[in-house]
Design a protein around this nucleic acid. Structure first.
Lengths: 216, 216
DNA sequence: GTCAAGCTTTTTGTATACAAGATGTTTTCT
DNA sequence: AGAAAACATCTTGTATACAAAAAGCTTGAC
């Protein structure tokens, strides 16, 4: 389904930017990339354009493309939007979710609890992702779901970072439970504010992380 | 600043899709477009990729690109998201807006009122746009602002359509006033629900419009 | 020694050429 | 005659070639 090389290259580069292998401001040389991937400049250019459209790189006409890692401010802004988007999802979901949605969410959260008692951050990460993605699906608005997924994906590397923080996993689990309780009651307002708090605490934690990184 | 031909071509095609000149499902032939714009296939392909990234066309590998006009359901979903996004903007703005923001919003609304008393739909359209764009800016979150602008832009042609509906301009103005009042009071909750209602009524109106169009 | 103007090199943007998959047609076999 | 396979054609995806603009360097003047 994905026969275009440019798409595969774009995925690769996306990962490298996300993981920080390519640092902020780095120039992406077309010919160098072409040599590295063993293709001509054409698919490279198409890949770079795709990255530009998602905001991972900045394309300055006649100058080249440069990695555009979000700074602390921009990251906080993105986390805030993520929190709000999820809040909307869950508020809509409170009225619209199906029984399957609810059980899927509960299942995902059971997996989260298991991960916590195992103390397995990686496992928690995946279960947590399942929980959130299912939440997006439950809102009954396909467009909103895709937008939420898009941002979720964009924030992936940064979210992963902060699960390392002490006590975060356990706290996260408690917050999930609050969301689920509100959802079961069909209480959109409570569910929404619970989830917003859940996600925005990530932004706050991240803020602290940034501050600590700066100190070292 | 925009020296790449592909960008200009993308803008042109975007307009044609938005205005409906290119109808849903139409195939965009690269060579035909190249001939029409007097360029080679290369800039055409880049333009098409940009359109694909914003969802205006669907790109099927090895098949070609096709105009992807949103159907009624998708449009309603997009309007709902727009309503929610604006609701978030205004809720955040209630805590964060500057005096300049507030006066700018009031100015824009005065222009709206003028347009209503003139009965000038076009003038209203522009003043209304100023009002909403300023609202996005007032939320104090640059990322949210850009996301809101993106969707706003995407919905442009459909919004324009429904201002034609009888009494819509006047009603819209009243809703703006409610938002402004809540903003002045720093009441984010009220402002948010007022604005959500304001935007989602557009979705509803649009729904009716669709229904009527179907009848004819 | 420093700054600026002109040239060289590099790199992006575009055009053309080629390769490979998809579509449509014809031909052949049952 | 109908269906399937082989062939022809068209279109996309990729490579290469060329043009123009930006960056870097050399040279010269003050």
């Amino acid at each position: 389904m994905d026969t275009r090389r440019s798409d595969l290259i774009a995925d690769d580069l996306e990962d490298e930017i996300a993981t920080g292998a390519l640092e902020d401001g780095a120039r992406l040389d077309e010919m160098a990339l072409a040599a590295r991937f063993g293709v001509s400049r054409t698919p490279i250019r198409e890949a770079l354009q795709r990255l530009a459209s998602t905001g991972l790189v900045e394309q300055r006409p006649r100058r080249g493309v440069f990695v555009a890692q979000p700074g602390p401010v921009e990251l906080l802004e993105m986390f805030e939007v993520m929190a709000e988007l999820e809040g909307v999802c869950v508020r809509l979901a409170a009225d619209r979710l199906t029984d399957e949605d609810l059980t899927a969410l509960e299942d995902a959260n059971v997996a989260c609890a298991q991960a916590v008692s195992d103390g397995d951050a990686d496992q928690y990460y995946h279960a947590n992702e399942r929980f959130h993605l299912r939440l997006y699906a439950a809102c009954g608005n396909g467009f909103l779901e895709s937008e939420a997924r898009r941002l979720h994906r964009r924030l992936k590397p940064y979210r992963r970072l902060q699960l390392r923080l002490r006590g975060r996993m356990d706290q996260s689990l408690q917050e999930h439970r609050a969301v689920l309780t509100a959802l079961r009651d069909g209480n959109g307002i409570d569910a929404s504010s619970a989830l917003r708090a859940h996600v925005s605490v990530q932004g706050e934690k991240f803020h602290r992380l940034i501050a600590e990184m700066r100190r070292t």
